Amino acid sequence: MAKVGVIFGTDTGSTRRVAKTIAKCIGSQADKPVNIRNAGVENLLAYDVLILGTPTYGEGELPGKSTGNQTESWEEFLPRLKGHSFEGKKVALYGLGNQKSYSSNFASALRDIYDAFTECGAEIIGDGWEAAGYKFKFSKAIIDDQFVGLVLDEENQKELTEERIDLWLKGIDQAWS
């Protein structure tokens, strides 16, 4: 059985809460969720399966110091991936966004993580998440009319979060079973 790492980047609590929920749903195969500011590339490479989460800030940006975070986050971490191979690793992504207040860049930061790990040879799982059920103008996280991972809106559709997580995890649980 594969060991699962649940890694998130945030300066607030929503992405962390979702990480904890995901880890709890997976059970003993998932290690305790870790904030990306406390992880190095070597830490991520130690896992067979990674579940990576991010919120989207402002105009579609990753969390990081330039977006007002108190500590480093995905913005500072992703450049450290250069020269590392994630071939043979399975990576599932989840992103948080606000489809009303940030309709023009809804969950767009998720695409930056998708691109970075794809470039490093990771196999992306859990992509192809349907955009139906969301109301927004644009998202960089859409490829072929589907999100590159699970997208949650804790501000406007919190009541759907648990159901969406369960459905998404059922689609990827063979990666660690």
Rank of each mutant, 00 (worst) to 15 (best):
L81F: 05
G128F: 02
F106P: 07
Y94M: 00
H84P: 05
L93M: 11
L110H: 04
D115K: 12
T118N: 05
A109L: 02
E87H: 10
S85Y: 12
F136M: 13
P79W: 10
N98H: 03
K137Q: 14
K100G: 06
G126S: 05
E119N: 13
K100Q: 13
E87F: 04
S101L: 11
D112I: 00
S101G: 15
V91N: 00
F106K: 06
Y114S: 03
S104N: 13
N98T: 04
G128I: 02
R111H: 12
A132G: 14
V91R: 00
I113C: 03
E76W: 00
L78S: 09
Y114G: 00
K89Q: 12
S108I: 09
V91G: 02
G133T: 08
H84S: 13
Q99A: 07
W129A: 14
F77K: 00
A109P: 01
Y134A: 09
G121H: 02
I125H: 08
A116F: 04
W74L: 10
E87W: 03
Y114K: 03
E119M: 11
G88A: 03
E87P: 02
T118K: 10
A92V: 03
G126I: 04
E119P: 03
A116L: 08
Y102L: 09
G133D: 06
G126Q: 02
G83H: 07
G95A: 09
S85R: 12
E76C: 01
D127H: 14
F106W: 08
G95Y: 05
I113A: 02
L78P: 06
W129F: 15
S85I: 14
Q99Y: 07
K137S: 15
L78H: 08
D127W: 13
K135R: 14
G97A: 07
D115L: 07
Y134F: 15
A92F: 01
R80M: 11
G88D: 03
W129S: 14
K135V: 15
F86R: 02
G83R: 09
R80E: 14
T118L: 06
E87C: 10
K90T: 07
K82F: 09
F138A: 14
Y134E: 04
K100R: 12
G126H: 00
W129R: 14
I113P: 00
K89E: 10
Y94V: 00
A107D: 03
K137V: 14
Y94A: 00
D112F: 08
R111S: 13
G128R: 00
